[in-house]
Amino acid sequence: MKWSNVRVEPPTVATHLTVLLSSTARGARLARRLAGQQLAAWGVPYDSETSQAVALVTAELAANAITHGRTAGRDFRLTLLHLPEHGVVHVEMTDTRPGRLPRGPGVVESAATDAVSGRGLLLVAAYAERWGCEVRDAYTKTVWAEVRRPT
């Protein structure tokens, strides 16, 4: 074999990540860690505001997926899309309870001051440029958020 004929292509970095995770606290924790690692692979520093915002949004959406969207024996799906042409990172969390929809982005209510939960979507709304929910089939729903990247 002639080495002069061998061409080595530089590695390419995917602009999306999709992974199935168990509908457990461990799966939600892993979703957050994977988001940070994937952003670092896309060149977003791990300690940047963007990375921290995406990690927080991912953690909140994953927590909701395992708390409100869980069906026994079914996983949830994390999808991250790096959209540099739009200046955003798109986060999707797909769970198996399409009948349990969050209230829309304009209807987020704050929890009682002494409540220990109920503020997750308020945090998502604060850190995301926009967010929403889609039912794409009879078996799943996808809650998504877009976090703006500074230019």
Rank of each mutant, 00 (worst) to 15 (best):
T142V: 13
T96A: 14
P45V: 06
A65S: 06
V135R: 05
A14K: 13
H68G: 04
E85H: 10
T67V: 05
T58G: 07
G99L: 08
A55P: 06
M1L: 15
P11V: 14
V44L: 05
V143E: 11
N64W: 10
L83E: 12
A35I: 00
L121F: 08
R149W: 14
L81E: 09
E109K: 14
W3V: 14
L56V: 13
P45A: 07
A25C: 03
G132S: 08
T50E: 13
G99R: 08
I66W: 02
W3C: 09
R130F: 04
A112P: 10
L83C: 05
T140K: 10
V124G: 04
R136F: 10
A14H: 13
G27L: 00
L78H: 13
A65P: 04
S110H: 11
T18W: 00
L39D: 00
T113A: 13
R74W: 00
T12M: 02
T15K: 08
S23Y: 06
P10M: 15
P102F: 11
V19Y: 04
R32I: 00
E146M: 12
V54T: 05
E60V: 09
A62P: 09
E92H: 02
E134P: 00
V89I: 14
G69V: 03
T24M: 06
D95L: 03
S23L: 04
E134D: 11
A65M: 08
D114F: 04
A126V: 04
A111R: 02
W42K: 00
V6F: 13
Y46T: 11
L30V: 11
M1P: 12
E85A: 08
R148Q: 11
V143G: 03
R130H: 12
R149C: 14
T96G: 07
M93G: 02
T24C: 11
G43F: 05
G43Q: 11
V19S: 05
T71C: 13
N5P: 10
A111H: 01
R136S: 13
W131G: 01
D137A: 11
R149G: 09
V91E: 05
T67P: 04
D95F: 09
Q37S: 01
A63S: 11
V8N: 10
V44Y: 01
T50D: 11
V88G: 07
P11R: 12
S22C: 08
P10R: 14
R119D: 11
F76D: 06
T96W: 13
V6C: 14
A35T: 01
E9V: 15
G43K: 08
P150I: 15
S22A: 15
G104Y: 07
V89Q: 02
